[in-house]
Design a protein around this nucleic acid. Sequence first.
DNA 1: TTGTGTTTTATTGCCTCC
DNA 2: GGAGGCAATAAAACACAA
Length: 235
Amino acid sequence: MEETSKRRPFFSTQEDLYDEEYFDEQLPEKKRRLTPEQVHLLEKSFEAENKLEPERKTQLAKNLGLQPRQVAVWFQNRRARWKTKQLERDYDELKASFDSLRSNYDSILKENDKLKAELISLTEKFEPKEPIGESGKKPDPIPADAPPCLDLTVKVEDRLSTGSDGSAVVDDDGRQLLDSGDSYFPNNDYPDCMAAVDGGINSEEDDGSDDGRGYFSDVFGAAEQQEPMGWCIWS
DNA sequence: TTGTGTTTTATTGCCTCC
DNA sequence: GGAGGCAATAAAACACAA
């Protein structure tokens, strides 16, 4: 333990820390951890404002007995840590929104199945015994002038059954882009979810240099890999 | 005591803004 | 072009299980 005696104890006092002899002669080039007092003050300053103007940097450095460069570096690293935590929080929030949407989607799908079965059963019940019309063809259970939601119901199922994943799906008259890949929350049908997304991106308190690349697409990309959902709009 | 994983401090290189 | 920010990374300091 000869070595230990030369090393600065982790929680040394500020007086010890700035002892000239210790700094200049014992460990001139080693990294030194900041004292809890220094960290506390830096944390408080960071809470107040996470960016450091030159004046504040100089003042803090003076108060803490550090080099301005050390204060700048500490803020830099602290912002990085904060950003990592924020990303984790955003991820959790988005995942919760995603799970909720997915569960909602599943229940709507079930409801669709139920209604479709009901429609078929009713159609069969009221179907005439003899074929109607000159062609003698059996009428389509779903009339041509059926409301779009019914038409769309079939398309959603088709999309799921064919296992198509990720390709853009547009309904016949092109009025809705079902999955363009640009956004998982088209229109404003899911305001809660959009709020979560907006909050996540904006709350980053970044200067914009991050340009938002890839993070959220990773989240949903991973989710879609588990099971393609076939996003759609019920009008 | 030692090996290993995590955290913290510091450096480097690139980018943006003025 | 210099200042300052960021991401990526190195390396020291620390924590902890075996």
